[in-house]
Amino acid sequence: MLILVAFAVGEGALPIFSQEGFQFITGTDWNAVYGRESFGALPYIIGTLLSSAIAMAIGVPISLGIAIFVTEMAPHRISTPLSFVVELLAAVPSIIYGLWALFVFRFWIRDLIERPLYEHLSWIPFFDKTPFGLDIFTAGIVLSIMIIPIISSITREILRVVPNSQREAAYSLGATRWGTLRTAVFPYARSGILGASFLGLGRAIGETILVTMIIGNAIGPAAIPTTLFSQGQSLASLIANEFNEAASDLHLSALIGLGAILLLLSMVINIGARLMVSRMVKAVPGGRE
């Protein structure tokens, strides 16, 4: 199946790669006007990676916190409803998040987070742009909300299968609750937690409609983010934006080319994650998985 998809995408992208060559990846122009066509994907690759990185930076720690709270700390009567609510978040379609972000959440982010950051920390290049609310930063935050349920529920299950004998081993050495987490639970679960995080990352990279609605949809060199508050564009969102109005075969091929890059990107991340996990498991003879 994957091979079929990869083949179709590769074939569709062939014209653009033969036209632009390596320029397609490193170029920044995006011009679909007939006769002056020029396509470069670099801004969107950056936009994709940056928004996903923000999502991970915010989402992973919060997910870990939720999973630890639910499995290791909270009494049963709190942990059950809490994990139910978090899981419910996973059931919300991404377009709903997009609408909510577009009409409500982006103003909160703009007024409560971006403005203060801009006013006080604009000497840091990241924050040196008048915030508008529809930008890479907002997209990253909303993406993080979207991946938190996935990462936290998988992490929760992983923490749950850490045998109690491991926890008791640490407790019997006079470990505090935190010491037990650090000594017994995390090392045992780390490959699984890593896997969960990469699953979330895969979701964030490929997410289309939500990002399209809030990332700002910049085009061409302007889509290279100079600050976190720049309008950007991700690979997936550009495809969604322009697929219906692709003016020429070359334009269409360029969009498919973006798809090819996206596919490659997710594959590389996935395989990288696998390798990391398997190396960790190998370090533990008799370890799980």
Binding site: S165, A170, S172, L173, T183, P187, Y188, R190, V284
Partner: peptide, 16 residues
């Protein structure tokens, strides 16, 4: 627990 050590039914060394 620091003054009273414990050994369990199944050997449970830390696997990592």
């Amino acid at each position: 627990k620091r003054r009273i050590g414990m050994v369990f039914q199944k050997p449970n060394p830390f696997p990592t």
